[in-house]
Amino acid sequence: MEEKSVSTNKPSSALARAAQRAVSHEFFLAGILREYQQANQLDDEALAKSLGCHINDLPRLALCRRPATEQKVFIQDIEHLARRFHLHGDQLASAIRQVDSLRALRQQLTSTRNAQQMPGILRAARDRDQDSADSLEELDD
């Protein structure tokens, strides 16, 4: 594949804003990069340094599709992005893996917490049903 030139010109303010707006879309890398920054307390400059790319390219990178989960395509996507932005592919892959692990862990914790709360919720629901039944019986009386 033809290698594209590195684009280090400053992104427009609208593009930077779009990259922020893309955070809420799973499709883009923006959310991954944001979480990685938060988890590792990195500002934009530190993130760019960690990935080995130019800080001006961060919004462009954020607006890229997040690499596919399937291993073979994942590697291809990482290599593609590494060539395009002249970044450390292994570092980008590691950042994505780290965020995915954090998300999985968070999901697991949420499920566990919900499961722990469930008996209490069910008990409260049963109590309420019992109260309603008692009230109905009183009305019948």
Partner: peptide, 18 residues
Amino acid sequence: HEADAPGDFIELLLDPLI
């Protein structure tokens, strides 16, 4: 499905459409 195509597409069209 090129990974960097979405960013390029948005960059090409965002400001002109605005």
